[in-house]
Simulated assay, not measured.
Amino acid sequence: MRRYLFHRLLGMIVVIFLVLTIAFVLVRLAPGDPASLMLGPDATPGEVEALRIRLGLDRSMIAQYLTFLGDALQGDLGQSLFYNQPVTTVLAGRAEPTIFLALFSLIVALVIATPIGIWAAYRHGSVLDQASITTAMLAASVPSFLTGLVFQRYLATDLGWFPASGYGGAGAGFGDRMWHLVLPSITLGITNSALILRFTRASMLDILGEDYVRTARAKGMSERRVVLRHALKNAGIPIITVIGLTFALLVSGAVVTERVFNLPGMGNLVVNAVLRRDYPVIQGTLIIVAGLYVLVNLATDLLYLAVDKRVKY
């Protein structure tokens, strides 16, 4: 186990290093000068050049990269060019809505997908099974922004059940902020439930055809115990894998939903940073998301031990 964790940690370091390098190169390949964008069209060439020197943009790419890499290794992701604050401070201020949106969306997806996937596999070939597959395909095909706009129109504007947009106000309490996330979470949860549903159904179908399941039935065990204790437990590994990947995707892929519902999350922050050529914020977000992916993958692998004691590292 220790050897496995050691190799995984080495792999994490390599991945983060590659992400640092790719993020640095990609953001600087984008057209546009951050200094010109910050000062506006009325700035003189001298003012633009003075700002470039102050920001360190006049140095060579190699010098900028070495400085960026050294600072990142010390936990310093740089200073935002637009907010004039440390990138870590800017990201921390936008992390709450994104993290809770991803968490609530995952809960919604699990509530929808897990029971339907199990029942569809148990009733393989039935009308419910075919309907679940069709519904999953439809949920995966409809863009999240369209689902969000429909929910905004009918559930928020017409019926008034949920806030249409925003994240509460400046003095909003925790409960009020979470209430503003309910409708976006339902939107994202429905869209991402399709993948979990299909994996749950496929995994359960494989397990329900195994010999030990037929043996359990032959011994007179109830169908509920056979399905939930024997089949679902042994089908848990691929389901856990897709749940972990879905959570990571929700954190990094909630940009459209945040824009539709005007949430001050990391997705909105990245979009604005790209438009403003705020290099440090773009780089910092990419690093955080990559680190999250690596940690989620590691946590998912470790959860295998809790689900199936036969797993050995």
Score class of each variant (00 low, 15 high):
312 K>P: 02
279 Y>D: 06
197 L>W: 09
306 A>F: 14
167 Y>I: 04
231 A>R: 07
37 L>P: 01
257 T>N: 08
299 A>N: 01
58 D>P: 00
118 I>P: 01
281 V>A: 11
261 F>A: 12
43 A>W: 10
43 A>V: 06
192 N>H: 15
174 F>N: 02
27 V>C: 05
176 D>P: 01
248 A>R: 10
219 K>Y: 08
206 D>R: 10
26 L>D: 11
19 V>P: 04
140 A>S: 14
54 R>H: 10
96 E>C: 07
289 V>G: 10
173 G>A: 10
292 L>H: 08
123 R>A: 13
21 T>S: 07
70 G>T: 03
294 V>H: 01
101 L>W: 09
303 L>S: 15
102 A>N: 08
238 P>S: 07
169 G>Y: 15
243 I>M: 04
40 G>E: 04
41 P>D: 13
35 A>H: 04
60 S>A: 00
269 L>T: 06
153 R>C: 08
16 I>W: 02
58 D>V: 01
114 T>K: 09
245 L>Y: 09
13 I>T: 13
96 E>F: 15
145 F>T: 05
61 M>H: 08
191 T>H: 14
305 L>H: 12
261 F>D: 08
115 P>N: 05
22 I>Y: 13
146 L>Q: 07
292 L>R: 12
103 L>Y: 06
116 I>D: 07
222 S>K: 13
93 G>L: 05
173 G>K: 06
93 G>F: 04
213 V>D: 03
245 L>D: 03
312 K>A: 15
95 A>T: 03
159 L>K: 13
77 L>Y: 01
22 I>F: 14
25 V>E: 11
205 L>S: 06
23 A>S: 15
293 Y>W: 04
16 I>L: 10
222 S>F: 13
151 F>P: 00
221 M>I: 11
265 G>L: 12
87 V>T: 02
41 P>R: 11
99 I>P: 02
130 Q>P: 01
281 V>R: 02
74 Q>M: 12
25 V>N: 12
2 R>I: 12
256 V>D: 12
126 S>G: 02
185 S>I: 00
135 T>D: 02
249 L>D: 15
177 R>F: 12
186 I>A: 09
102 A>H: 08
62 I>M: 11
242 V>Q: 03
214 R>G: 13
137 M>C: 13
276 R>F: 14
96 E>T: 13
293 Y>C: 07
85 Q>P: 00
114 T>V: 15
171 G>H: 15
125 G>L: 10
178 M>E: 06
97 P>Q: 05
217 R>K: 12
232 L>T: 07
246 T>D: 03
284 G>R: 05
106 L>N: 07
150 V>L: 14
236 G>R: 06
126 S>D: 08
84 N>M: 10
291 G>Y: 04
136 A>G: 13
109 A>V: 04
302 L>C: 11
73 L>E: 04
278 D>L: 07
262 N>L: 15
67 T>K: 11
33 D>G: 03
